[in-house]
């Protein structure tokens, strides 16, 4: 039996009936067709599904959609501002912070929150701040470089 929830995602309010067991990530991907948020594991350990929920970076595979009732969510699709890239997106592009791109949306969402919380993050802070997000392609070096450069450019916006 469905439960009706109301969530604001990327500035639009959606009212939908969901199965109580539906994970937030599946709600975003399958119900709202916001497929930028990816799924890479099932143990909350890869971070590919990271979104912003009421001002926090959360792994959307570890929340039920019903728990997000009334919440304000930003996904990777909502990060750019009227077509102008968020400084973190720009920095990932400039510094070659991605290869296959699969972990990238989650990585960028985690990184924006990291820099917002700690605008002067050191390399060590960045590496530790991103330990919840896995990348198999880049060896992290250019991701760390991108986050540092976005921080310098006022990456929180």
């Amino acid at each position: 039996m469905g439960i009706t929830i109301s969530v604001e995602v990327n500035g639009t309010t959606y009212e939908r009936e969901v199965e109580p067991r539906t994970l937030l990530v599946h709600f975003l991907r399958e119900e709202l067709r916001l497929t930028g948020t990816n799924v890479g594991c099932e143990t909350s350990l890869c971070g590919a599904c990271t979104v912003h929920l009421d001002g926090l970076a959360v792994k959307s595979c570890t929340q039920l959609a019903v728990q997000a009732d009334g919440a304000k969510i930003t996904t990777i699709e909502g990060l750019a501002d009227n077509g102008s890239l968020h400084p973190m997106q720009q920095a990932f592009w400039d510094e070659h912070g991605l290869q296959c791109g699969y972990c990238t949306p989650g990585m960028i969402m985690a990184a924006t929150k990291l820099v917002e919380d700690n605008p002067d993050a050191s390399e060590d802070d960045i590496r530790h701040g991103l330990k919840g997000n896995l990348c198999r392609c880049t060896g992290y070096q250019n991701i760390v470089k991108a986050v540092a450069s976005a921080a310098k450019a006022g990456g929180a916006r």
């Binding site: 497929t35 930028g36 990238t104 949306p105």
Partner: peptide
Amino acid sequence: IKRREDPALITGKGKYTDDF
């Protein structure tokens, strides 16, 4: 040269198999 692939991938517009 910066990658031409990236604008789609950093904005969530890249389509992987499960997105279809």
